[in-house]
Design a protein around this nucleic acid. Structure first.
Lengths: 159, 159
DNA sequence: ATCAGGATGTTATAACATTGCTTTTAGCGT
DNA sequence: ACGCTAAAAGCAATGTTATAACATCCTGAT
């Protein structure tokens, strides 16, 4: 197991870097990293917790100084998801940015119920086991949703 | 890994039995297995796919011959979830019945994108690994959401 | 300049879920 | 049987999340 991205201590520099990586990736793939998409991804990075689509919309409106419609944001989110630049946390109806849009891995998300900090861990052994299970069932897996809800170390210490 | 409940071939007998188990369990726990709750659980068992709350509502209205409000159904669903009689599939906003409401286990759900059949598998080894990861993070896990989306063997064979 | 495709704008609505409050019902002691 | 209490269910309104359907704009290739 190796932690790959803790949402909590994301510095300004990391955000800048992540946006640069995303920009390069989009160029390489021949897809457009438009201002809307860039600003949305930035919004996700700056937030230190998973954002719902409407919350992202509000923040984006605030920082951009213009009004947006839900559809616009959902389309941009879909783009980020497709490109692996963000991930949807199903159990929260929310979205987090992804630090490694390229290489596929087995992401497990630990989401704190209290502070909502979201820690992404890559556990390839879990991935292997799930693949075995899938094979045994003859099931072709397209997407994995691995989310653990509970209390993070920090919040546990607070009590 | 052992498959613990395939939604697909659920016989009438199995439904009856599951309801009986649920009833006994509720008595043992001193909670009420009311007609609403029983009928809702039956609806979930009879459906061979995860049901959304509103879909369950419609089917329940149909089989019961009365109208229901969303609140009513959500409350009954909450009860079933609390008692472990049903599980929520987060990536579908939908609910499936659970065959073993008592003993805790590591449920992994394989959900077919095409026919929506949902296969529950118990992989304790995955559970163990995730527990390790959690320990390493100092994270206290309350709930696990392990869902794999893709295509089931049956649908693969159809193509 | 024109056209094609991707991106975005606009409006409406579907799908999912909760809040607050009232009424009914079940279980319990007397 | 009676009345009490708490759980369950009814009800209306509203909040939240997500998509459909269609129009327009922008950009790059010919």
């Amino acid at each position: 197991m190796k932690p790959v991205s803790s949402m909590s201590p994301v510095t300004h520099g990391q955000t800048i870097q992540a946006l640069a990586v995303a920009a390069r990736l989009c160029v390489a793939r021949g897809v457009q990293f438009t201002e809307l998409r860039r600003r949305l991804l930035e919004t996700l990075w700056v937030a230190h917790e998973p954002l719902g689509a409407y919350e992202a919309l509000r923040r984006l409106e605030g920082s951009w100084g213009r009004t947006l419609k839900p559809t616009t944001v959902y389309r941009a989110l879909d783009f980020l998801l497709e490109q692996g630049l963000a991930v949807r946390i199903e159990s929260r109806n929310a979205y987090v940015p992804c630090a490694h849009p390229d290489q596929p891995h087995t992401s497990v998300f630990f989401v704190c119920d209290q502070c909502r900090v979201t820690i992404e861990v890559d556990d390839s052994e879990v991935g292997r086991l799930l693949k075995c299970d899938a094979t045994a069932l003859g099931f072709d897996v397209r997407r994995r949703v691995l989310e653990l809800q509970g209390t993070c170390a920090h919040c546990l210490a607070m009590r």
